[in-house]
Write a protein that binds this DNA or RNA. Structure first.
Lengths: 130, 130
DNA sequence: TATTACGTTTACGTTAACGTAAACTTAAGC
DNA sequence: GCTTAAGTTTACGTTAACGTAAACGTAATA
């Protein structure tokens, strides 16, 4: 029998690690995205909370809203039994994927644009020093 | 000598093409992102306005704010002469590129996650029908 | 024991990106 | 000539994602 010493994190610890404020962590909890346990009144975040936080922040970098990230997380650890629900879930997953693929295209186009802009800068620098 | 019949677009026309509201176009103008000419009081959007609109919307899909998109557009068609400014611009371009590359990684990870989620859905469907 | 540090709740404030409504002008069609 | 349609300005409303401040509890430390 293991004592199950699953590591947990204080609010400051987690906030510092991911470079967010404690307010943000409480806000995410309020929105149901995290649910730390309590030691008295003080929050204790589990490894699962930590993982979810990482997913949320990744979502943010991709421009997702918290609700969208929340949905994706729910998709990920949902164990719905109903066949119909499973099909609906798969459909939503496909939809999300389409968005991401579009985003991938947008991203490459923008990288090309930046490259272009940089080249023109470099050209300008040449013509200045000539 | 060409009469320079450069095609222009009405507000409704442009709004419909890009699936935004006219309010949005006026708002972007207010923010200095577009600057249509006028025929009396009515707005006439140029090809350049149209291009900028496309860039803005692409930016939105990537999660950029209007200000960020605005900056990128300025980067793109800026013809600053000053060497110092050019270096600063290049530096900002590099910074943006770093963000985009990070975003590319995030995006691939999320695609993997979705794939994973879908596979588990499919597994569940199998075990239901067995 | 007083202060400092860190946690808590409650609640109002803020910014971006539009939505929505009112009140008006102008051009087109019947 | 009247209505309808599409444009305009002005201005207030709305939502997401926190920021910020007040007022409080608790625990270590000087």
């Amino acid at each position: 029998m293991n004592k199950a010493v699953t590591k947990s994190y204080g609010i400051r610890e987690l906030a510092d690690e991911f470079d967010v404020t404690t307010r943000t962590l409480r806000f995410y909890e309020e929105k149901g995205l995290l649910n730390p346990s309590r030691e008295n009144t003080t929050r204790l975040y589990s490894a699962s909370d930590r993982t979810r936080l990482r997913l949320i922040l990744r979502g943010k970098r991709l421009g997702l809203t918290l609700e969208e990230s929340s949905n994706i997380i729910l998709m990920y650890n949902s164990d719905e039994k109903n066949t119909e629900q499973l099909h609906a879930l798969i459909s939503k997953i496909h939809e999300k994927r389409e968005q991401l693929l579009q985003q991938q295209k947008d991203l490459e186009l923008m990288l090309l644009d930046l490259e272009d802009a940089e080249n023109r800068c470099l050209e300008s620098l040449k013509s200045v020093s000539s």
